[in-house]
């Protein structure tokens, strides 16, 4: 029996590998293998590469091993344990798995980190991204604070992404969409969020953007698509200023795909 155990344990240990290649841990075939992988994952004496490989194998085992539910509680406990590990990559992966399961422990840790950077287990942009897995997380206030005073541009982007599910953030997205100083990626994100949260407001802003001679081509193209696909055809067809603006946009120096968008729009209204 002992010999069999040693044999299986050895099977789960990393194989000899070529220099530079990441360590690999064999795929778990049953719940006994899973338990051994869990031990490996928790073992801070093992090299981080081995523990990461164990975590990867556990992720696969959660789908492939029959009766995984019998070890699910052990799996959750181990993930919570290593989510505060000294190695950031391991924390990131463990918290990611937990947040996809809407785990309260992970959520609390991530929110605490956003409120108090000294307690942060992950950078704010990653924490926000993971919190976005659970619409019921209490993350909107923290996200708004980050939009107001972003520690970096990635954090602001992720905060906006998270707020795209918050009905009360529609006015914020209107502001971001109209702000020419804002990163264009964020403006595109704002257009998409507004379409979901308040499509009428997106239509209003899209009209203003198209009539604004100084706005950027990509933002105009997005606005044009929003109007073409979801706008009030009767009202748009009668808007002469809009048609002139779109004609001008189609004739201006702009990438071919934007000109094509303009042509398609004009042809829809017989121009």
């Amino acid at each position: 029996m002992m010999a069999t155990k040693r044999k299986v344990a050895k099977k789960l240990e990393p194989r000899k590998r070529k220099a530079g290649a990441p360590p690999s841990v064999q795929v778990a075939e049953n719940t006994d293998d899973v338990r051994r992988l869990l031990k490996l994952l928790r073992n801070i004496g093992k090299p981080i590469g081995v523990r990461m490989a164990a975590l990867q194998s556990l992720g696969a085992a959660a789908f492939s091993v029959a009766n995984f539910e019998s070890v699910n509680a052990d799996y959750i406990a181990a993930l919570r344990d290593v989510s505060t590990d000294s190695h950031e990559q391991l924390r990131r992966r463990a918290l990611g798995i937990l947040m996809r399961n809407k785990d309260g422990f992970a959520q609390k840790k991530l929110l605490n980190g956003l409120k108090d950077p000294a307690k942060a287990l992950l950078p704010p942009e990653k924490a926000l991204q993971l919190l976005g897995n659970d619409v019921h997380a209490e993350a909107y206030a923290a996200a708004r604070a980050i939009v107001k005073k972003p520690p970096n541009k990635e954090a602001k982007r992720e905060a906006l992404r998270l707020l795209a599910a918050d009905a009360r953030s529609a006015p914020l997205f209107e502001k971001v969409l109209r702000d020419k100083k804002e990163l264009r990626e964020n403006r595109q994100l704002a257009a998409s969020a507004l379409h979901s949260l308040n499509p009428e407001k997106l239509q209003q802003q899209a009209l203003k953007i198209l009539k604004d001679k100084k706005d950027y081509s990509d933002i105009k193209a997005t606005s044009l698509t929003a109007l073409e696909q979801f706008g009030d055809d009767a009202a748009l067809g009668k808007d002469k200023v809009l048609m002139q603006s779109v004609t001008r946009f189609g004739a201006a120096k702009a990438p071919a795909k934007y000109k094509q968008t303009a042509r398609r729009f004009l042809s829809k209204y017989g121009r």
């Binding site: 699910n72 509680a73 959750i76 344990d81």
Partner: peptide, 19 residues
């Protein structure tokens, strides 16, 4: 039973990190 979790009732807000 398909998503059982370890729980801790020791103190308020505590989450189990051991099964």
């Amino acid at each position: 039973r398909y998503h059982d979790e370890p729980v801790s009732f020791e103190s308020y807000g505590e989450y189990a990190t051991s099964s």
